[in-house]
Computed example of a mutant assay.
Amino acid sequence: MPPPLRIVVADDNPVVRAGLAALLSGRDDIEVVAEAADGREAYEQAVRHRPDVILLDVRMPGVDGLTALPRLVPLAPVLMLTYSHENETVYEALRRGAGGYLVHGEFSADQLVRAVGDIRAGRAHFSHSAAGALLANVRQFTQRPLHAQSNVGHSSGGQALSPAVLSTELSRREGEIMDLIASGMTNQQIAAACFISQKTVKNHINRIFAKLNARNRGEAIARWYGAAPGGAHRHD
């Protein structure tokens, strides 16, 4: 049998820590090697034990989860495991390197174990409200109000099309995918956030590139932000 996955659990609530430790340590393929009450202690335990995955709460006294993330990510993949599901919090956790985000009350014991395995293997994992919060935050960030789009043109005029105009070229799902591309997410993370396969993500991206007349992600993002020459082709 392969060695068990070694986990550090960081949460300021001792009841939550004990519950998670008991849940995960009851399996032959997972071992909780340390617990931590805040981000600083999580870092110290991660340096000492070199775990395979770190389970990290967001709100903790002293050094909170978001503050600790940039120092923890180089040591081990991090799965946020928290009650916090605000749009900005989810987005910031992903921006700072978290590999996944689970909200308490939205997953079973088996789903938690599967998420730990996914994070260890480099596969992103989100619970439903976390995925929804991420999409909502990215959509709000990338879309600009119409009154700020004075430079909007058409492809024939050599000006960029804004997200508001491009949204009429892309399907709703393609718009969501484009939002996530613009946020810097990988195909793997997009697949997890949208609950679709990576192959489906690739198919969506190919259609997006064709509609935006883009050769790569950089060009697609530039046109989505209205910052590059050229424009989208109409696909009915």
Rank of each mutant, 00 (worst) to 15 (best):
7 I>V: 14
8 V>A: 08
10 A>D: 07
13 N>H: 14
19 G>M: 04
21 A>Y: 03
30 I>E: 02
32 V>C: 09
34 A>M: 03
41 E>W: 05
43 Y>M: 13
44 E>V: 11
46 A>W: 01
49 H>S: 11
53 V>Q: 08
56 L>A: 06
60 M>H: 10
64 D>S: 08
65 G>T: 02
66 L>E: 07
66 L>C: 07
72 L>N: 10
72 L>R: 09
73 V>H: 11
76 A>R: 03
79 L>S: 06
80 M>F: 06
84 S>K: 08
87 N>H: 13
87 N>R: 15
88 E>A: 15
95 R>W: 02
100 G>L: 00
102 L>W: 04
102 L>T: 04
122 G>E: 09
126 F>V: 07
127 S>I: 05
135 L>R: 13
136 A>L: 12
137 N>R: 15
138 V>Q: 15
138 V>I: 08
139 R>H: 15
144 R>K: 14
154 H>Y: 13
155 S>P: 04
155 S>C: 05
155 S>N: 09
159 Q>L: 14
160 A>Q: 00
161 L>Y: 06
168 T>Y: 13
173 R>Q: 12
179 D>C: 14
180 L>D: 04
187 N>I: 00
188 Q>N: 15
189 Q>R: 12
191 A>T: 07
196 I>N: 00
197 S>R: 10
198 Q>L: 06
202 K>V: 08
203 N>G: 11
205 I>P: 10
205 I>R: 14
208 I>W: 00
209 F>R: 05
209 F>T: 01
211 K>L: 01
215 R>K: 13
215 R>S: 15
218 G>E: 14
218 G>R: 10
219 E>W: 01
219 E>T: 08
225 Y>M: 13
232 A>V: 03
233 H>T: 15
234 R>H: 12
